[in-house]
């Protein structure tokens, strides 16, 4: 079993015998250390009380009522569904008709189209001598895609600066928090797309950075007003500990290099 040298202080924390500064430091450590948290749970009287308080027995007919109501609700769902199979069948009949001749024609057309596209866009590009393409962006990706990565990380940097400047309760009064949350929510969605692209390109460094960004974006997107006094300092500390800004700036530097016009 893992041990932590802070563990022995937990009893003092629970007994209230630590000085305020030491108690605060230990509390901050506790929520990030699984060993100390487990030890604290074991020793906390309130946790013991909660663990012993089992739920009261449900009313006798509750389960039977639930089952009969659910059966009715699911049956009414089935009544609604005939439309969906119809749509599916119709779509299937357009894209996958039963007629074999038609299928063969469709496959041939698709093949010709594929060859055409291949000749247009995948023709060998004459080698140009320019600056080395950075490691994180060393794939055959277009300038537009690099610009989209650049936009994402520019916004990420701005969001982080904004979160670092948030303070409670001003952020709630000025509705700044809602604005920040909406940006974080939007970025979470875009991050998913970027992760898929990074996976396709096998860019593990980018994928790892996006995963770390996600943790941060989740926290910001779910920051509620009532938890803000506790959560905001935690998120700000997390940003400092993650040292994520340095990584973002590095990526931004790389993107700028990658789309910089070659000098003659």
């Amino acid at each position: 079993m893992k041990t932590c040298h802070f563990e022995e202080k937990i009893d003092d924390l629970l007994a209230g015998s630590l000085e305020a500064e030491a108690a605060e430091a230990l509390e901050n450590h506790l929520v990030t250390c699984t060993t100390c948290f487990a030890r604290w749970e074991e020793a906390s009287a309130m946790v013991q009380v909660l663990s012993q308080a089992s739920a009261p027995e449900p009313p006798p007919n509750l389960l039977a009522d639930f089952q009969s109501e659910l059966t009715k609700a699911l049956a009414s769902e089935d009544d609604k569904s005939p439309l969906w199979p119809n749509i599916q069948n119709r779509a299937r009949s357009i894209f996958w008709p039963g007629n074999t001749t038609y299928r063969v024609l469709q496959a041939a057309a698709l093949l010709i189209f594929g060859v055409f596209i291949g000749r247009q866009f995948l023709a060998p590009v004459p080698e140009v001598v320019g600056p080395p393409v950075p490691a994180a962006l060393n794939q055959n990706i277009s300038t537009e895609e690099i610009e989209s990565v650049q936009r994402f990380f520019n916004e990420a940097e701005m969001l982080i600066i904004q979160v670092m400047n948030l303070s409670y309760p001003d952020a709630i009064e000025t509705e700044e928090i809602e604005f920040t949350q909406s940006i974080a929510q939007d970025m979470l969605v875009r991050s998913q797309t970027m992760q898929e692209e990074a996976l396709e390109l096998n860019d593990m460094a980018m994928l790892k950075l996006l995963h770390r960004m996600d943790v941060l974006l989740y926290e910001v997107a779910n920051l509620s007003g009532e938890d803000m006094p506790d959560m905001l300092p935690f998120i700000q500390k997390m940003i400092r500990d993650m040292n994520i800004v340095a990584e973002i700036r590095l990526i931004l530097e790389e993107t700028r290099e990658a789309i910089k016009p070659f000098s003659i």
């Binding site: 506790l30 699984t34 926290e219």
Partner: peptide, 26 residues
């Protein structure tokens, strides 16, 4: 959310419960 966030919610919640319910002794 992250596991750290879960621990913060639990820890702060328990602290608040202690204030509400008083010092329970086992």
């Amino acid at each position: 959310c992250s596991e750290n966030t879960v621990r913060i919610h639990i820890f702060r919640g328990i602290k608040k419960l202690k204030t509400i319910l008083g010092n329970i002794q086992i």
